[in-house]
Amino acid sequence: MESLFLLIPLSLVLVGLLVWVLRWSIKSGQFNDLDGPGHAILMDDDAPKPSKS
């Protein structure tokens, strides 16, 4: 029973911390472009670049 007096507040603090981290990541734009990095891997940059002459 004594362990519940420690575990319940500790779990509430952990949940509060996780909610704060999620809100911070949403506000800072971490989830704005979810598809871009995945498509960037598949793009080929093998096309020859035009020369300047």
Rank of each mutant, 00 (worst) to 15 (best):
G16T: 15
F31R: 01
D46Y: 11
N32A: 08
S51A: 15
A40E: 11
G29T: 10
P48E: 03
L12C: 13
P9W: 00
L4V: 05
L42T: 07
W24L: 09
A40R: 11
I8M: 10
G38H: 00
M43D: 08
D44C: 01
K52V: 13
L12G: 01
V15Q: 05
A47W: 10
P37W: 00
I8L: 09
I26A: 00
V13W: 00
V13E: 07
L6M: 10
K49R: 14
A40Y: 04
S28F: 07
P48F: 00
E2L: 15
P37A: 03
G38N: 03
V19M: 11
I41W: 03
I26M: 07
D44K: 14
F31A: 05
H39G: 04
W20Q: 09
G36P: 01
D33V: 05
V19L: 13
F31L: 07
W24T: 02
L18W: 06
L6F: 05
D35M: 14
D46E: 07
S11T: 14
L10Q: 04
G36E: 06
L14R: 02
V21N: 11
G36Y: 01
N32T: 07
G38K: 12
N32S: 04
M43W: 03
N32D: 12
P9R: 03
V19C: 02
S51N: 14
L6S: 13
S3F: 09
L34H: 00
I26V: 13
S11I: 12
L6N: 12
